[in-house]
Design a protein around this nucleic acid. Sequence first.
DNA 1: TGGATATATATGGTATATCATGGAATTTCA
DNA 2: TGAAATTCCATGATATACCATATATATCCA
Lengths: 156, 156
Amino acid sequence: MALFLSTYVNKLDKKGRISVPSGFRSALAGQSFQGVVLFKSQKHAALEGFPMSYMEDISERLDHFDLFSDEQDDLATTIFAQSVQLPLDGDGRIILPSDLIDFAGLGEQASFVGLGHKFQIWAPEKLEARKAEAMSAVKDKSMTIPKNNKADKGRA
Amino acid sequence: MALFLSTYVNKLDKKGRISVPSGFRSALAGQSFQGVVLFKSQKHAALEGFPMSYMEDISERLDHFDLFSDEQDDLATTIFAQSVQLPLDGDGRIILPSDLIDFAGLGEQASFVGLGHKFQIWAPEKLEARKAEAMSAVKDKSMTIPKNNKADKGRA
DNA sequence: TGGATATATATGGTATATCATGGAATTTCA
DNA sequence: TGAAATTCCATGATATACCATATATATCCA
């Protein structure tokens, strides 16, 4: 599997430890860094999750700005400074830092939400509201998915 | 790890000694010079930090200016002439020169801020405001991350 | 088809290694 | 020979690796 798909609810233990769903782990196969990168969502009380390769990609793209430019500085501070790198332990778990647990309002459980090349982590209660909201937005605005532009294929 | 990620707060002792976060040290693995290069930021009361290999990259960028042009001369003087090379000691620490400590306004603690290929060192109090500023700038100006231009690949 | 056995995943607990930090000892250089 | 810088060592806190169990899923054989 190359994509993060569907939703899984797993338990968070006292030490902040939680299993990454097996399907998500296989999406990470072949990565140089066996683990995930997380940061606080700008829009929701949730965490954004990426594979390391995606962060490296972002870093390269930021190099297209002038060094020390406002854009490079602001974007890098917003993205990289706030992100944490969490390695998988031998059993496929990660340890969530307590400030991220607080930010997302996680209790005994957390939902892993697959979103293709990235995923999110939510408190299960809050996720329900979010899903309803997303579905009604798609419906009301009759949203559709754009054509795939082949010329663009290199980077999603 | 190939990138400088997240923010770590470490202690500065009386001799100006401070631990480089372990994650940052592994980003330096494989470098010919085991240590970092620091210089004063032009925009902030903070220090800019790079691995030695990246300084060569900066040097290449300066080659885009004409030799002996004002720009090249000024930038080179600002960056290269001011930078200090700090080796890691046996325990992964560096010693900050006192003028850099004063410039950044560091007290008992200092924050290492990961920004991808580079990092910054801040007084923790000042960093909070900076992060808020960066986040609102990204939001207000609707900054986005440029697509990766493959034609550019040779030099990022 | 049914039962039994294997495989993989999620989860809980414990032992071990690493890291950050403070201080002392030794070296270097003026 | 004195001051500064570098190296070395000790320690508590924290994070990492390890092991054990349970639950579910898949496989195999009779």
